[in-house]
């Protein structure tokens, strides 16, 4: 667990360097190209831009979280997770039918589909913990872990609500226009991920 925290830290350290790098390169480059007034101005205007974006975001995200809370309290998200059972059985035939891992995987996938990122991570970590138990705590990832992560990484979120909010803020004539194409693209990338996993699983078993 400690190592896990260490790695998360590493990722954030990387972001520290990335962020510092952006500003250092920007300032130095700006001095050399003689764009100091633009650079100076952008420090102020960008932070202002971030806050006006947050104000648009606050409305959209609060509305969406409110609707999702209704879905949660009415048991809709749980009911949808249960409906994932056959699909989970298809993707993970080697997990025993009544193992708790199935439940965490279903919760995680449904949370991702509905775009509840903050609910997806805890159940995802629990799913990994259970898959690790089934794998006997080995250092090498099991087929199930690989499948779970590849599908997770393929992006499952159907309605990209924050992208819509960003588009709205930047004056899109129809911010929601990208929903249908986004769903098609998400399904396509997930489809490729599933096919890839099925092929790799088969190859793994043949060995």
């Amino acid at each position: 667990m400690l190592e896990g925290i260490g790695l998360v830290k590493k990722v954030f350290t990387m972001l520290n360097y990335l962020w510092a790098g952006m500003i250092i390169i920007g300032v130095v480059f700006g001095i050399f190209t003689g764009k100091t007034s633009e650079v100076s101005e952008s420090f102020l205007s960008s932070s202002k831009e971030a806050i006006s974006l947050c104000i648009t975001m606050a409305g959209v995200v609060a509305m969406w979280s409110g609707i999702m809370e209704i879905a949660k309290e009415s048991g809709l998200t749980n009911a949808l997770s249960r409906k994932m059972k056959p699909l989970i059985g298809f993707l993970f035939p080697n997990i025993p039918k009544d193992d708790i891992a199935n439940e965490y995987i279903a919760t995680n996938m449904m949370a991702n589909i509905l775009g509840l990122g903050w609910a997806a991570t805890p159940s995802g970590l629990l799913a990994m913990k259970e898959l690790n138990r089934l794998n006997g705590g080995k250092e090498t990832a099991s087929n199930e872990m690989c499948i779970f992560l590849v599908i997770n990484i393929s992006s499952l979120q159907l309605i990209p609500i924050n992208i819509i909010a960003y588009r709205m803020q930047y004056g899109s004539a129809n911010p929601a226009e990208i929903i249908a194409p986004a769903i098609v693209a998400t399904l396509a990338s997930t489809f490729v991920a599933v096919i890839f996993c099925l092929i790799m699983r088969k190859r793994g078993m043949a060995k």
């Binding site: 896990g4 970590l125 990832a141 690989c146 992560l149 590849v150 393929s154």
Partner: peptide
């Protein structure tokens, strides 16, 4: 985040799958 939470270091074909689906996207 996910692999390190369970101390798995050999991730096998996860990265290949992730990059492939990103490319498809």
């Amino acid at each position: 985040v996910y692999f390190m939470s369970v101390n798995v270091s050999k991730t096998r074909w996860t990265l290949a799958g992730g990059l492939l689906s990103t490319l498809a996207g």
